[in-house]
Design a protein around this nucleic acid. Structure first.
Lengths: 153, 153
DNA sequence: TATTGTTATACTCTATAACTATA
DNA sequence: TATAGTTATAGAGTATAACAATA
């Protein structure tokens, strides 16, 4: 069983992720939003999603958690849910005008945040970082590991 | 106001961080721990910290939040807190034998997780990743940005 | 019965404010 | 008064289990 060559990369990643995520949360909050709301809106705008389950999966949360956020967002007048006439089990989620406005504000905040993140990085370095991140994600998101492979229920 | 050159790096980072953090949380939980407990223990083991405030800062949480975790850990028999005879305001935190045992188990789990993360990465790529992460963290952890610079309270 | 989504409930992590103990 | 830490309380995000609606 070979040991890691250097200091745990997971620890460095955890620390950076915490600091960067917190900064991003703060930026979104200052613009009147939140990370889940932003992820939901960006998914609604950029992807063609069939149902809420796909939406939840795209964001990395469970269906009930998505419902929770949609309830808040609907109460805030950001989205409306209406049933699909063709299959009334499906609730179609749409941004309201107010939702569109907030989306643009959050997009601006995210852009500003991104420029702050990119400070001192060349385009090539950003590309390298993106590639490394993708590979990291792949390494953990592949097959479930041992712990989950035995089903005793 | 220049716009980002490519897709938001913050979004990619958020997604990767979420997936990797979740996998790490799961690994620690499977070993009988949690992320905060692990961060606390690793700080106790590797750093010489004067007081709990420094410990909290090292982990990136507030003092009251640290107390909360220490309460749980003490109830679980992982740490003990005793007052410094020289300055009885200071509570010295120490790992118990049971805490040491769990620390080793979590270290093993973290190591396994790290090897999973490193899959397919060369040492050079890991070094590059570490450097990029450090720079990202620096970009957000520096001076507070605009939002916070006007004090109206 | 299977699918889609919601409701009810609870857990974890975090935070702020008020408090106690010590100096 | 200032410093170290705790307690009380709250809020955000997430999850599972049970439920309702629709097919």
């Amino acid at each position: 069983m070979p040991r890691p060559t250097g200091p745990p990369i997971g620890l460095a990643l955890t620390r950076t992720a915490k600091a960067v995520s917190r900064a991003f949360d703060d930026a979104l909050a200052a613009a009147g939003g939140s990370l889940p709301a932003w992820l939901i809106m960006i998914s609604l705008k950029t992807r063609s999603l069939g149902n809420q389950r796909e939406l939840a999966e795209a964001i990395g949360i469970r269906g009930a958690t998505l419902t929770h956020h949609l309830n808040t967002m609907e109460a805030d007048g950001l989205v409306i849910r209406r049933r699909d006439p063709a299959n009334r089990r499906i609730h179609q989620v749409e941004l309201t005008d107010r939702g569109e406005t907030l989306f643009r504000q959050l997009a601006a905040a995210a852009s500003t945040h991104d420029q702050r993140l990119r400070t001192g990085f060349s385009d090539e370095e950003i590309a390298t970082l993106e590639q490394l991140l993708r590979r990291l994600q792949h390494n953990v998101s592949g097959e479930a590991h041992d712990r989950a492979s035995r089903s005793d229920a």
